[in-house]
Simulated assay, not measured.
Amino acid sequence: MSRTVFYARVSVDDQTIAHQRTQAESAGFVIDEVVADDGVSGVFTTLAERPQGRRLFDMLRRGDVLVVRWVDRLGRSYTDVTEAIRAFMARGVIVRTVINNMTFDGATADPIQMAVRDALIGFMAATAQAQAEATKEAQRAGINHAKGREGAYRGRKPSYSGSQLETVCAMQSQGATVATIAKATGLSRQTIYRIVGSPIEAYIVLERWNK
């Protein structure tokens, strides 16, 4: 009997496993089991290197459905994400995302459909890595300078959390409208326009307050 497994990964304080599961269930997913890695980076570890990520490869069978909030929960590396999704598809596992409700499986034999599917997987994986690199660039280029001496003025506190920032970037990269992103995140359109206009600056501001 097939089952639906939700995989969550959290690496910062303002993300929670419970929140990711609530998002999935609110989107209509009926989850049989939750597998989660808490406090684990997707930049420095591959899915197979994480304790619970490794467990996914052991437990998932043909016909099972693997649900993730977005592909960046699987990893922040293009190679890691694409290889993981292809490995699951090869064993007959269906991979679905909460954001944009994407579905990836190995059912089709049509070369055109396969090409479109693989191109989309590659694009989403590349976006996940680009977001991670933007975060690192923000840390290198501006955080230390922006923080300055202890007690220095940090500007207005951001109205978004780390998970909201990731969701905005992910949905925007997939072509979602500002109205759709606002509904999904609860953020104002003005905030979303500001994030989309300068995502690196948005990361810098958030890190400045997370000191």
Score class of each variant (00 low, 15 high):
Asn100Lys: 15
Asn100Arg: 15
Asn101Thr: 15
Thr103Asp: 03
Phe104Gly: 00
Phe104Tyr: 15
Phe104Cys: 01
Asp105Tyr: 00
Gly106Pro: 02
Gly106Tyr: 00
Gly106Met: 02
Ala107Leu: 07
Ala107Gly: 14
Thr108Asp: 07
Thr108Gly: 09
Asp110Phe: 03
Pro111Lys: 11
Ala115Ser: 09
Ala115Lys: 11
Ala115Trp: 02
Val116Asp: 08
Asp118Leu: 04
Asp118Val: 04
Ala119Lys: 15
Leu120Tyr: 06
Phe123Pro: 01
Phe123Ala: 11
Ala126His: 10
Thr127Asp: 08
Gln129Arg: 15
Gln129Pro: 05
Ala130Cys: 03
Gln131Lys: 13
Ala132Lys: 10
Ala134Val: 10
Thr135Ala: 14
Lys136Val: 14
Lys136Asp: 06
Lys136Asn: 11
Arg140Ile: 02
Gly142Tyr: 06
Asn144Ile: 08
Ala146Val: 12
Lys147Tyr: 04
Lys147Gly: 02
Lys147Ile: 10
Glu150Arg: 14
Ala152Leu: 06
Arg154Ala: 07
Arg156Gly: 02
Ser159Ile: 11
Ser161Asp: 09
Ser161Phe: 03
Ser161Glu: 12
Gly162Val: 02
Ser163His: 09
Gln164Val: 05
Leu165Arg: 06
Glu166Arg: 13
Glu166Pro: 04
Thr167His: 12
Cys169Gln: 15
Gln172Met: 10
Gln172Arg: 12
Gln172Phe: 08
Gln174Arg: 11
Gly175Val: 08
Ala176His: 10
Thr177Phe: 09
Thr177Cys: 12
Ala179Asp: 14
Ala182Pro: 04
